[in-house]
């Protein structure tokens, strides 16, 4: 499988503090490298502030990086200009978390879905027919065409957002927590829709979520982020069945399981405290202050991402 996207040593630092204060940097993304293969879903998990959303925005060039590059179909997206950039915007897009703010409340569904077509000046024949086809594709129908976003439930709005992205026939879609604002009964509808569309159009997804159960359901491979770094990456089943990094192990053991019998039996790997401030990340391994297995070495040296078994990488001194 060829890599559609290659991320190389990507960094994004945000300045904090005013002009009078000494400038400090939030290292939101601090040197991540990975690739996404064509037709797969890469799950990106981590707690709030770990840099997963910033990574997603960097991948679509909604932010300019501090350092590093992203190759899309072999070309560095930060070097694209003019027509090439517009072509990239057509091929790569995003579905946001909150369907309540991602749609302009002043536009009808028809206008929302036609907007990308107008921006890219694509000839689609009869616009109404084209929009209708897309609406059917995401499970809506003609009665929804001239309504406004506020008349829809969260799940339906997310369908509209998906139709808007599909209108351009993209290759790559970032799904930034697409179901975390939705109810469970609707969440499964949207997840299944996304899976079906992926199969139908050979789409490539970057699926971002803090909900590990959902990530497991959606992803082929999973990358775990902690404080701007990838600590583990590998095949989804392997990550869940035999996680390596203590952080991954803790996360997986701590998800509440919807089964009271299992919940009572399960052993939890509790970790103390909360993710530290990314302005001054701890030295050495960034996870060491919360890690139940931390050794002296973890406090001083930063572990590299190494291939532990085929395709399964981990950054932890326990495995070197």
């Amino acid at each position: 499988m060829p890599a559609l996207i290659q991320v190389e040593n990507l960094k994004k630092y945000f300045p904090v503090g005013g002009k009078l204060l000494v400038k400090q940097w939030v290292k939101a993304v601090d040197g991540v490298s990975f690739e996404i293969y064509e037709g797969e879903t890469l799950g990106l998990v981590g707690e709030s502030g770990c840099g997963k959303s910033t990574t997603a925005r960097l991948l679509l060039r909604l932010e300019e990086p501090t350092d590093g590059k992203v190759l899309f179909e072999g070309k560095n997206i930060y070097k694209l200009r003019g027509r090439e950039l517009k072509e990239f915007r057509r091929k790569a897009n995003i579905v946001f978390q909150d369907p309540y703010t991602s749609l302009d409340p002043r536009m009808t569904v028809f206008d929302i879905i036609m907007e990308p077509i107008r921006v890219h000046k694509i000839d689609v024949g009869d616009p109404e027919q084209y929009v209708l086809k897309l609406l059917y594709e995401v499970g809506l129908n003609e009665s929804h065409m001239y309504r406004y976003p506020h008349e829809f439930s969260g799940g339906q709005r997310q369908r509209i957002a998906i139709a808007r992205v599909l209108a351009l026939r993209p290759k790559f879609i970032v799904l930034d927590e697409p179901t975390s604002a939705l109810d469970v009964s609707v969440q499964a509808q949207i997840l299944n829709l996304l899976k079906d569309l992926q199969k139908k159009y050979n789409l490539t997804y970057l699926f971002i979520s803090h909900n590990l159960a959902v990530v497991r359901y959606m992803s082929h491979r999973i990358a775990v982020m902690y404080l701007g770094k990838i600590v583990e990456i590998g095949d989804a089943e392997e990550i869940f069945e035999s996680p390596l990094h203590p952080y991954t192990r803790a996360l997986i053991s701590l998800i509440p399981v919807p089964d009271p019998f299992q919940a009572r039996k399960r052993k939890k790997l509790m970790i103390q405290g909360e993710p530290p401030n990314p302005i001054n990340p701890p030295p050495g391994c960034r996870f060491h202050p919360r890690c139940p297995f931390a050794k002296d070495r973890c406090k001083k040296e930063e572990p590299k991402l190494i291939e532990y078994s085929k395709g399964h990488y981990v950054a932890c001194w326990l495995y070197s």
């Binding site: 915007r89 057509r90 703010t101 749609l103 957002a161």
Partner: peptide
């Protein structure tokens, strides 16, 4: 700050639009 503005940017819309 609304997400739909970022969505419009992701679609390649110009600032004036």
């Amino acid at each position: 700050g609304n997400v739909f503005v970022m969505a419009a940017q992701a679609l390649g819309m110009s600032s004036r639009e």
